[in-house]
């Protein structure tokens, strides 16, 4: 797994960090929070896994609650951005959690969209209902997100499937995103075709352009 360590800083003795979870970060590194959302079964976890580990696991488990990934993206100018990806469960009952965080009104409790710099809203090209639900997800972002300039992209996953299994064509997805003035990608987590790397590279550049250094230092 890529991490956000920057070379140059003397590494700390590993005694207190036996499982190497902690990365020693310099101030120069920027962080961004990205949430992966969309209906159950559209391939959110597979997208994250393809991006982070460069592989496709056909034995993935359905996500319960949320799962977390991190990966460092390097830019041509030598700078880098560390993406923290919240891979969320698509199940409807988990969606019910978000507004609840607000209801409790404790500083401790926040919803998963809070302080997110970007959202990757996914559907599956094999499931036309998952495309229709994109609007529901976008509404949730508007309702619960707190960063006005949050970057949103629409992603149609499973582009590798046979024509006979496809329910949403490329054009349809493109048009859908266009009408909402959002960038559009079609990806395959199954194939190693670079579609997912391209998605996150573009997303990272966009984040870097849209947010100041300070904004990319904010906490979770």
């Amino acid at each position: 797994m890529g991490n956000c360590n920057k070379k140059g800083k003397p590494s700390r003795p590993s005694v207190r960090d036996p499982i190497n979870i902690r990365g020693d970060k310099e101030n120069k590194v920027s962080y961004a929070k990205v949430v992966l959302i969309g209906n159950s079964g559209v391939g959110k976890t597979s997208i994250a896994q393809r991006f982070i580990e460069g592989k496709f696991d056909e034995n993935n488990k359905n996500t319960v609650g949320a799962s977390y990934f991190q990966k460092n993206i390097s830019f041509k100018d030598g700078s880098s951005l560390c993406l923290y990806i919240w891979d969320t469960a698509g199940g409807e009952k988990f969606q019910a959690l978000a507004p609840l965080y607000y209801r409790v009104k404790s500083k401790y409790i926040i919803n998963i969209f809070q302080n997110a710099h970007a959202a990757v809203v996914c559907y599956s090209v094999t499931d036309d209902d998952s495309l229709k639900q994109i609007d529901t997800w976008l509404n949730k972002l508007d309702e619960h997100g707190n960063i006005a300039k949050m970057i949103k992209v629409v992603v149609g996953n499973k582009s590798d499937v046979d024509k006979s299994e496809r329910r949403v064509d490329l054009k349809e997805g493109k048009l859908f995103a266009q009408q909402r003035d959002l960038p559009f990608f079609e990806t395959s987590a199954l194939l190693n075709d670079g579609s997912i790397d391209e998605l996150f590279q573009k997303l990272a550049s966009q984040i870097k352009q849209s947010f100041t250094k300070e904004e990319l230092h904010a906490t979770v």
Binding site: R16, G65, A66, Y68, Q70, Y84, T219, V220
Partner: peptide, 27 residues
């Protein structure tokens, strides 16, 4: 607790949400 105290906001979430469980099995 000690290792958690050294983590930043981001790593805390990765650890508590996922890694903590297998780490506990392993140790």
């Amino acid at each position: 607790k000690e290792i958690l105290m050294e983590m930043d906001a981001w790593d805390l979430q990765v650890f508590i949400g996922r890694k903590m469980f297998q780490a506990s099995i392993e140790n």
